[in-house]
Write a protein that binds this DNA or RNA. Structure first.
Length: 271
DNA sequence: ATTATATCCTGATCGC
DNA sequence: TGCGATCAGGATATAA
């Protein structure tokens, strides 16, 4: 499931390949994908490739002005970059962009939860939450985002209207790194705990980016390669295995209908 | 206002 | 061998 580190990995790979390239043609192969005014895409030039939360955004220069083409990969979406006649698994391809020199960008998506949108400005296509790797994200800002919220920590981390980019894997890994229970109430966190959480969010996401994201099932980068961070997961998917820090048995519980993993030894205030 | 639940969708897995 | 049930979860709409 592509979260911030996985999407960042894809964006960093696509940027040098795509910037300056012209979209010569495109095809939508899944009629579930609606793209109003999609005809504006043909002939557009890619000005930049950016990550907006969990979205991959292409800023395009078209005859009608700037356009933003954004891909939400959701559960199983992949953006695959192909050069020349490089073979690819043709199944589940939902959209194809043709660029110069026989290069193609394929949007593959097994479960078809992914979404494509076309907007006229960055604001129009940006998620509302704060980027956790931006300079604005400081402990005091985290505190004000939490404010008086009554939610448990783990579901709070999944809220894209507060912080963007965290999904179910990192929403377990971050509380572990902060030594906080995923089921503690965010409003009860002390100043010290807010600082630990702030540091954990940044360090876990940055380390995961260094390792090109986590492949648990379907995630692949734009070259089709899996990530490397799954080898470094401390709790996610490790139910009944020993904690790498304290040796206690990692446990799984369901919070907000989602699997949640934690170490009862390292993370206080258990469920 | 907040929190819980249902929905979308396919492939992998499991029990019989 | 096959078949049905279950599970995985990002985001959103709707219900409580």
């Amino acid at each position: 499931m592509p979260e911030l580190p996985e999407v960042e990995t894809i964006v960093r790979q696509l940027r040098p390949k795509m910037v300056g390239q012209r979209i010569t043609s495109f095809e939508i192969l899944d009629r579930k994908l609606a793209l109003p005014a999609g005809e504006e895409l043909a002939g557009a030039v890619v000005e930049s490739v950016e990550r907006l939360g969990k979205q991959v955004a292409l800023r395009l220069r078209t005859d009608l002005g700037n356009r933003w083409l954004v891909f939400q990969l959701r559960m199983t979406g992949q953006l695959l970059w192909l050069e020349d006649y490089q073979p690819v698994n043709p199944k589940h391809v939902r959209m194809r962009l043709d660029l110069g020199n026989n290069c193609k960008l394929l949007f593959r998506d097994i479960r078809r939860f992914g979404v494509i949108a076309l907007g006229k400005s960055r604001d129009e296509v940006s998620p509302v939450g704060l980027e956790p790797l931006s300079a604005e994200f400081i402990p005091e800002r985290l505190g004000s985002l939490i404010d008086n919220c009554r939610q448990l920590l783990k579901p709070w981390l999944l809220r894209q209207d507060r912080l963007v980019g965290i999904g179910n894997i990192y929403a377990s890994e971050i509380p572990f790194a902060a030594r906080l229970s995923p089921s503690c109430r965010v409003r009860t966190l002390s100043t010290d705990e807010i600082h630990r959480l702030h540091h954990a969010i940044i360090s876990v996401l940055e380390l995961a980016i260094e390792h090109r994201g986590t492949t648990f099932s379907d995630y692949r980068d734009s070259t089709g390669e899996p990530g490397g961070f799954q080898k470094l997961l401390k709790v996610y998917g490790r139910e009944a295995q020993p904690c790498r820090i304290c040796g206690e048995t990692i446990r799984r519980s369901v919070i907000g209908q989602r699997s949640t993993y934690f170490c009862p030894g390292c993370q206080s205030a258990l469920l």
